[in-house]
Every structure is written in C-alpha cells, then in structure tokens.
Design a binder for these strands. Structure first.
Lengths: 209, 209, 209, 209
DNA sequence: GATGAATGAGTGTTCATTCAT
DNA sequence: AATGAATGAACACTCATTCAT
C-alpha cells in the first residue's frame, strides 16, 4: 500500500545546518505565498527564489526541478497534518467511539479551514506532479492512527475495525474536500459539520458487534 | 451561492448545425483522449486540433482559449453526470429513504468508476481554470434533485430536509473522490461502498423527526 | 562507409515554396554571418532568428534545435563544395594525371580560400554536433569523383587506382586545412601550393603501373 | 609569424612545489578523461574539479578561466608532441632524406593514433579558445626541427630547404588529421600511410638541386 | 590556502494565439 | 469559413565564477 517516493521528486539535499533550514523555510513560505496569490500556473521558479531571498541557483541546489519543490511543499503540509491527526488520535484513546469521530472531524476540519486559501492552493498545485506516493503515505499514517484509536473504544467492539475506521477517515476527509469545493457558506459549513458528526455517531452506533 | 458562469470561459458560438456539433464532439473527444493519455500539462491546443481533425484556427472559432476548451469539456461531463443523478432521483421517488441514498451512491459511484482514467484526468484538468461556477451549478442541480427525492420518502419526515439531503450529497461525492485519490483496491472500494451505504442508512434512521 | 544521417539532426521540413526557400536562405546566411562575426559559442538562436528576419518560433519550425541548424549549414556548405569538385573532376577527364591533380588542388584551395572567414568559422562550428555522417558522405562523393577522373588518365595506368586517388584526396584536403590552421602568409601559401602540386606530380609519376 | 601567447590564457601560477604539480596533473588528467567521455560541451568546471579531487576554488587558483584550462591541456599535449618530433628529428640526422620523412610520418602518426579518443577530444576542445598561438608555436618548433634534420641529408641538397621541409610537415600533419576525420578503417589507414610515404619519397627525389 | 555554497546572467525551447491567404 | 504558418513572450534550468568562512 505504501508506494515509495518517486526518487526524481526528492529534494537534493537534506538540510544539515540551521542556515540551510532557514533557507528551506523561506523557500517553502515563498512558494505557498505565491501559490495562494497567483496559483500554480503563475508560479515561476525565479519568482519563488526572489521572494525567498535566494538565487535561483541556490534553489536548484535544494530542488532539482520545479516539481520537486511543489512536491516538497505538499509533503511538508501533509506531514504536519498527519502529525496533528496522530496527536488527536492519541489524546482520544479510551473515549467513547462517537467522541473519537467527533475529535477527528474537529481536528481535520479545523486544520483545513485555518488557512483555507492555502488549502485550496495546495489542492490545485498538484498537477504535473505524481503525488500518489504522498497521498498513500498520508493515508497509511492516518489509517494506522485512527485504527489504533478506535481499537481502544470502551463500550464498542467493531466487527471489522479496519473497515470501519477506513470508512470514517475516507468519509470525513472526502466530505471536507467536497465542502471546500462547493464553497459552502459559514452557516452551511457548520450545519454540514453537525450532520457529519451525527452521521458518524449513527454509523458507529449501528456497528456494535 | 450560485455563481454566474464567467463569460470569458464560454464557448464562442452555440452550434446550430449538425456539422458544427460533430466538430465539437470531435474536439471534446480529442481533448479527453489526450488528457487521459498524457495529462493536462502535455495537452497542447495544436495537438487537440490535429487529433480532432480540424485546424487550430477552427478550434479557436469554437473556443476563445485553451481554458474555455477545458471548461467546456468539464461542463459537458458534469452536465451528463447531473442528468444521470436527476434521472436516478426521479426514479427513486417514493422509495424508502435508505433505498434512495443507496440509489444515489450507486449512480454516482458507477458513473465515476466507469471510466476511472477519464475521471482522474478531468479532476486534474482543473488547474488554470476557474471551475467554481461549474461546481456550484452542479451542486445546485444535485441538491435540488435529491431534496425533491427525499421529500417523497414515505416513512420518514426529516426535521431539516435541506440540511440532510445536502449532507448526504456532500458526503457521498466527497467520499468517492477521496477513495479515488487513495487509489483503493477493488476490494477496498466495494467494502467502502458498503460501509458508506450503512452509514447513510444509519444516519437516515437517526434523522426521523 | 556511408553513414546514414542522424535523424535527430535533420531539418523538420523540406521547403516546398519559394517563400520557405527564401526564409531558409536567410536563416543560413544569418547563421554564417554570426558564426563568422562572433563564433559558435556566441551564437544564440534568438539572434540568428532576429538577424534572419524571422521569429524564433519560425526557425524552430525548420530546425528542431540549434544543432540541426548548424548541421544544415555545414551540410549545405559541403554539398556545394562537393559539387564544385565533381564539376572539376568531370571537366578534367582525359587530361594527363598530373593536370588532374593540379585541377583538384586548384578547385579545393580556391573554394576554401574564397571566404577564409567562413571556412574557419565552419571548421569551428562543429562541436556539439555529430558531423561524422556529413564528412563521410562528402568523402564518398569526392572519392567517387576523383577515382572516376583518374581512371580516364591517358598515359598512366595506376596499379591501385582506389588507393592512389584516396591518398591524393586525403593529402590535398588535409594540407589545405593544416595550412589554414597555421595561418600561413600569402607568400607561404602560394609556395606551399606549388610544392603540393610538385609532390602530387612526383607521386603520380612514381605510380605508373 | 610567431604569435605571443595570449596572457589571458596562461595559467595563474607556475607550480613550484611537488604538491602543486601533482594537483595540476590531476586536473589535466580529469579534464582529458571528461573530454574523452562526454565531449567538450558536457565539460563543467565543477566536474573537472571533483574528478581531480580538488575544490573548484582551488582549480580557479590555477586557471583563471575554463578557457585557460583547456588551453593548458592543449599546450601540454602539443609540447609533448613537439618534443617527440624533435627527438625523432635529432635521431634521424644523417639518414637519407626519404628515411627522414618516413621517420617523421611514423612518429607523428603513432603519436596521434596511440590514443585516438584523446586526439579527437582535443581536436574538438578547441572552440571557445584562441589556439592560434599554440599552433604557431608548435609549427615553429616542428619547422625548425625538420629543417635542421633535412639539412643533414647526405645525398641530397634541396634548392629550397625551408619550403620543402615546411611542405612536408604541413602535408604530413594535414593528412593525418584528415584521415582521422574520415574515420578510415585500419586497412585504409595503413594503406594511406604507405601512399603518404611513397608520395614524400617521390617528392624528395624530385627535389634534388 | 582551500573550500564549495551561492550567485544570476544567459539561452534553448515551447506553445497559446493570431491573421494573411 | 477554414487553414496552419508565423509569432514572440515567457520560463525552466545550467554553469562559470566569486567570496565568506
């Protein structure tokens, strides 16, 4: 299930000094800013470099090509997101299953909504890039975390833990994305969020083994 | 909520003769083929025209931009999809609410899965294009159709029909898309589909007013 | 012996209209001018195009890349040179062998010296380009022409016509090139030319079968 | 006629320690290897330095330009070649003139053929570099050596020693180069070499004053 | 002295779009 | 109307050279 990261998309060097790290951060930040401001099609390597305060040459020291840059930005974003989810899953261990689902929804939705422009920009940045490996790794991490969490639910024992937790994750993530695309109003969003929680609770209740 | 179609993205002329229609079809077909074969980044207007058997000049008669072309292809795709959903909704009127949801899931999932390569290609064709209007119109049509359908459910009366039907639609569409992105195996897909149906049923049961 | 022309170096289209031919001529002329003026390393496609009065895009219609352009220029140059040599060889048929050699020397040296800057520029333009096929074809043509010529020499019959004529050609062409590289003075050149003629005559005389 | 060496092309420092000499050797060796392996267009200073086991910075201590590096490599190559020729000329003093010519041909051809890939690579390395001075110095040395040699020929006295010896040198060197370019087969090469010797002998015989 | 990370000017090439025929 | 040759702005990427450490 876990596809190996396409080597052509990896960064050229792992930053080992503080300076390099700062440079990388600047590049990431610049990339995201430009992505948000003008969208992927307008993103030029020269502009990213300039905005990041480095030369193009330096940027190419870190990223062998534009795709690798976009890849890295998405990678970092998903890594942080995965960590948040793992954190939530750890915290929620032992809670009632419905509360778990609610915590998951809350974390994911909040993370995505915090910087909606960034979320949207990254969703759209993905052309020209083979992001399958990224998605799969993210999926694997969240599946593992949620499965582990639901396994500790006190009052429920699921007939098929794997299936249920994967379904919940897929439904939640998918719903959030679709809601984004539909440009729901705040009112609609909060309503939808309530319905999604209700749906997950009803589903969990119906799953008792 | 309903955004008007950006006029810059509309086709230049409404086809009024059979010939023009055939040309349009050829262009659409060529576009989709190339999108599937090489992806959006490799799609050049010259190639589309050649593949469609017309000159670039002629193609620009129909579509003022590359974007307009992509827009039109997506528009047509969503139009057909919306019609399928409306058809299903009409057919399912009067059935039990759970059966309605199942019919909806079935129709949508089948439509998306029939030509997964096309689905994926179109998902990815959307950069450079402001597809919000498209999405909104599609959402409006499906919301209307599903709301109308659920209104005829015999044994249930929903406290908030709008909310519920919108939630169902968002969840279903989102789940399908997310499943696509995660590249689920056939086994996982059919399992997930079952869980989704169960989830919708549980949700609907819990909604009785 | 005749290597096929590397397909990657061929021009994209054979000119079929007068206009296209004029364009090609302009491009060739511009290329040679720039080659002479600044040398290969300074030759930019943009500049060639501008000087030729066409757009870069148009130039790329005719030549898939810079190398193909240089290749074509050399090809044309060698073609004309080969034709001159073939002409001389035809004219000289039936003359005494020594006169044949002298005619050959005369033609080749004159052709190379007429525009010494062009000669030098083309000699130097050859990096980055696999010109082996070009050289081999040129060699094959001149070998054939000279062999045919020497076969008609009245008072001599060569034990090994092939060998002798190839040797003469190689020696003559090589000498001219070397003389070029050494930047001989006019005086030295004309002296050398005389010596070369004497050498060929002596050689031919010594070859009688 | 003897052009002074362009100062911009000279190496920065004359190596005075063994260490520096070893470094220089490594750089030369690396340059030639890369030239042979990938050709001049692919030769980057960074690569040469890496291959030579020094930093780019250090390399720029020795050679102010890429051009200076190439210049130095060619200079060294021609220096060794000149020494070989001078050696041969010294050895051959007092022999019959024909034997002298043959010795010259033998030395030059062997030297060029020993490492044909290197020969070819250096021939092609010359773009971007003003190698006239190099060639002229080489020519001056070989002219001097051969003239001195032919002056000692016992049974011949040449009407114009200068002319004859320069002609012989030019013809021989040129022939070898042209043979190289035509990619003659081994058979053809050895045949051509025989013809060249015959030609020189006939010429010399015809030159007796 | 040595290093090699950083620089950024410079170039080949593409491709959406136009417009003369 | 239809064609497709011509356009040229735009961009990713390289690599000789420098200079702070």
């Amino acid at each position: 299930m876990t596809a190996s990261v396409p080597s052509s998309l990896k960064s050229r060097k792992k930053p080992q000094q503080a300076r390099a790290n700062a440079t990388l951060d600047a590049i990431f930040e610049a990339t995201i800013q430009l992505l948000v401001k003008d969208g992927y099609p307008m993103l030029t390597t020269t502009w990213v470099a300039e905005r990041a305060g480095v030369s193009v040459g330096t940027m190419y020291q870190y990223f062998p090509h534009k795709q690798a840059l976009i890849y890295a930005v998405n990678e970092r974003y998903l890594k942080i997101l995965a960590e948040k989810i793992e954190h939530t899953c750890r915290e929620a261990q032992g809670l009632p299953a419905a509360a778990m689902a609610e915590a998951l929804i809350d974390t994911y939705w909040t993370a995505k909504t915090e910087r909606p422009d960034v979320t949207r920009a990254l969703y759209r940045s993905v052309v020209e890039m083979d992001n399958e490996a990224l998605i799969l790794e993210f999926a694997a991490r969240t599946d593992a975390a949620t499965t582990a969490m639901f396994a500790t639910a006190p009052n429920k024992s699921f007939s098929d833990l794997q299936s249920v937790s994967r379904a919940l994750v897929t439904v939640i993530f998918g719903t959030v994305r679709n809601s984004f695309e539909r440009s729901h109003s705040e009112q609609e969003v909060s309503d939808l969020r309530g319905q999604l929680i209700a749906m997950c609770r009803a589903y969990i209740d119906s799953c008792v083994g």
